[in-house]
Amino acid sequence: MRAFAAAAIGLTAAVALVLTVTAIGPPQDGTSPEPLLTTVPGPKK
Rank of each mutant, 00 (worst) to 15 (best):
A7M: 10
P26K: 04
P27W: 00
E34W: 07
L17S: 08
P43Q: 12
P27D: 04
G25C: 13
A6L: 12
V15H: 01
T38Q: 06
P27F: 01
Q28K: 12
V21Y: 11
F4Y: 08
G10Y: 01
V15R: 01
V15E: 08
M1W: 11
A6I: 10
A3T: 09
A8N: 12
A14W: 00
A8W: 11
T12K: 02
P41A: 10
T12M: 08
L11C: 12
P43K: 03
D29K: 05
P41D: 03
T31D: 07
L37Q: 11
T22D: 08
P33F: 06
F4C: 15
G25R: 06
I24G: 05
A5N: 05
L17R: 05
E34M: 00
A7K: 13
L19F: 04
G25A: 02
G42H: 07
T22A: 14
P33T: 10
I9S: 13
T20K: 13
T20P: 02
L19H: 03
I9D: 15
V18Q: 08
A7C: 15
T12G: 14
L37E: 12
A5Y: 06
A13S: 09
A13D: 04
G42K: 13
A3I: 04
V21S: 02
P27L: 01
L17M: 04
T12I: 02
T22F: 06
A7N: 14
P33H: 03
D29Q: 13
P43N: 11
P43G: 06
A13P: 03
A8S: 14
V40P: 14
A7F: 08
T20L: 08
A5L: 05
D29A: 10
P35C: 07
A7G: 14
P35G: 11
T12Y: 08
A13C: 09
V21P: 00
P35T: 05
V18N: 14
A16V: 12
A16H: 09
V40A: 14
L17D: 05
Q28I: 08
A16G: 10
G30S: 00
G10D: 05
A23W: 05
A8Y: 13
Q28D: 15
A6N: 14
A13W: 03
A8D: 12
L37Y: 13
D29G: 07
P27G: 01
F4S: 12
A13I: 11
L37S: 09
P43E: 08
P43F: 11
A3Q: 06
M1Q: 11
T22K: 13
G10L: 12
R2M: 06
A16E: 06
A3P: 10
D29P: 02
Q28T: 15
L17E: 06
A14P: 01
L17F: 00
G42C: 04
L17V: 03
M1P: 15
I9W: 07
G10S: 07
G42A: 13
R2S: 10
G30V: 00
A23L: 03
P26I: 00
